[in-house]
Amino acid sequence: MTHDLAPQLFNGLVLGAFYGIVAIGLSLIMNLTGTINMAHGSFMTLAGYLAYTMVQRGMSFWVALIVAPLIVVIVGVLVERGLVRPLYKREPFYSLLMTFGLSLMAEEAFRLIWGPNGVPFSPPPALAGAAALGFMSFPTFRIFIAGVLIVAIVALALFLTRTRFGLRLRAAVQDTEMIAALGTNTQVLYAVNFGLGILLAGIAGVLAAGMLGLSPTSGNALLMPAFVTVIIGGMGSLFGSIVGGLLIGMAISLTTLFIPAASEVAMYILMAIVLLVRPRGLFGEEGIFG
C-alpha cells in the first residue's frame, strides 16, 4: 500500500489544484457581488462539452482548450448582464436561487444535447501515456494539468496585483461605493470579474473533462469541494483557496487510499476542524462577509 502513496499524493495535489481554481473563481464572484454562483459547475461542464464537440469535429485539443473557455466566458457575461445583475440590489440569496435554477436547466439541456450518459473525452496523443518522475511514473496529462493550473493561478495573481484593472477590482471588493465615486464604472468591473471567474471555471472544465470524465453532472461534482475549499481557505483570500484546495485534495486522496468509505466525508471533517480552530478559515480576512 505504501508504494501507492507517492502517486496518490500527487494525484491529490492535482485534484486539489482543481478545487483551488474552481474555488478562486467562486471567490472572485462572491467577494465582489455577494453572489454564490451555483451554476459554476454548469459552466465547467459546458466548457467540457464544447471542447468535446470541437475535438469531435476535427479541431485540435489545443484550440479547444483555448476557444471553449472563451465561449463559456461570453455565455457567462451574458448571464451576468441579463439575469444576475438585476439581483445585486437584493438579498444575496436571490442570486443563489437564480443560479441554482440555471444549473438545473443547464443539466437538463446537457442531457438533451449530449445524452444522459458520460461521453469519452481523452487527452491528445502528445499528452497520453506516462512520464517517469525518477521515483515514480505519472500520467503525462496530469502533469500537464498541474502546469496549466499553476500558470493560470500565477497569471491571475499578476493581473490582480500588477495591473490597474486588478487594483480597481480589489479596491471594489473593499468599498464599491468609493470606487464608483472615484469615477470607475463598477458595472464593467462586475462583468469583467464575473467573466474572469467563469474563465477559470472554463479552463478547469476542459481539463477536468479529460481527467475526471464528462457527463451532465460532472461539473457539479466539483462544486461542493470548491465550497468547502472556500470555507477552509477563508473567504476573500485567493491564497487561502489554493492552500485549502491542496489540503482537501490530499485529504481525499489519502482517505481514498486508507479508508475508502470515508473519502467524501473527509473534507467536511477537515472543514469542521479548521472552523473550530480558525472560525474565519485559514486565511480569512476580518470583516469580509463576517
Partner: peptide
C-alpha cells in the same frame, strides 16, 4: 458563527455531510 452568505455556504456544506 456566521451571517449572510457565509451562513448559507456553511449550511450547504455541513448539510452535505
Amino acid at each position: 458563527r456566521r451571517r449572510g452568505i457565509y451562513f448559507g455556504l456553511l449550511s450547504i456544506a455541513f448539510g452535505q455531510v
